[in-house]
Design a protein around this nucleic acid. Sequence first.
DNA 1: AACAAATATTTTGTCATCAAACTATCTTGC
DNA 2: GCAAGATAGTTTGATGACAAAATATTTGTT
Lengths: 163, 163
Amino acid sequence: MAKASTKPKLDLVRGDDSYATIPEAFRNVLGYHLRVAQEASFQAFSAAVDKADLKPGWYSILTILSEYGELTPSDLSRVCGRDRSTLTATLKGLVIRGLIERHQNPDDQRSYSVRLTDDGHKMQRRLHAIAHKHDQRLDEIAGDDKDVVLAVLARIVNALGTG
Amino acid sequence: MAKASTKPKLDLVRGDDSYATIPEAFRNVLGYHLRVAQEASFQAFSAAVDKADLKPGWYSILTILSEYGELTPSDLSRVCGRDRSTLTATLKGLVIRGLIERHQNPDDQRSYSVRLTDDGHKMQRRLHAIAHKHDQRLDEIAGDDKDVVLAVLARIVNALGTG
DNA sequence: AACAAATATTTTGTCATCAAACTATCTTGC
DNA sequence: GCAAGATAGTTTGATGACAAAATATTTGTT
């Protein structure tokens, strides 16, 4: 409703596919721009990783393990900010590919931890190189505003929770 | 690798579930914070919509239609920045629920357009009320930095493309 | 010691996203 | 007028996410 006077139907038809028309209702809406920017960023990283025949989902897990050494799936899920159940399939794949190995916890039969293998370390470095290039690109785009943006994003996460 | 000296394993175990420990490797990385913040924002909106027994995916489509009046799935996909194939299922659901209706294009048998029904308009307003509250919350969190953040997010999308 | 409660992980179901393959239809060029 | 190519939409398959239910095991209580 609102202002039904101007219906911008026409300029939708554009040859290039850059995102032509932002609906008026979303123009000032952080959530919308957050979603679109995150999707763009992920797709760009994904494409770069894909060219090397790797999976984008591996990067964060391998990197966290390279930093923390050894973690249970639950701790890993807390650190990377995703639900535990999301990790199961990825971890299974990483084990199969020999990039991580499981260690049964001798004190608790329910629990195990994962750590990088040598191949896992190598793969982490490969992925990190790709990720780092992507980060640099984002940093250039953000320029001097980077710190402000990081601060706002952190406030959003703290205020709304991780999920 | 890098600095294997301090492995912060310990403070992971926290009673609350606010995101405790950001891996050092991600602390300054826009892409990571973008992903986590977007996920948090989406989950918060999703939860609010869910309480009213609605679907978050409906909101953007209904709102775009309320603004543009009548669109083909392809144009809708361009406006909302998602792939065409993503819309198929949602549009089907919206038709079934009587929130939108399809109109065959008389000049092209392949093509149709969708527009809101009266129920669709009502539903759009309900969802908008929820979305608006969510937006206000994000606006409060962003405070004076909102415009800077919006500008950076827009630059990211323009530089990396919509997907 | 036994049963209840908490915890660690997996499984299942839903949804959103893209890309690529497929179908149907329209347009173009010859 | 007909075949080739472009376009609109759908389907299928992969990935990634959550939540809720199911399993297995440990801990705590009486």
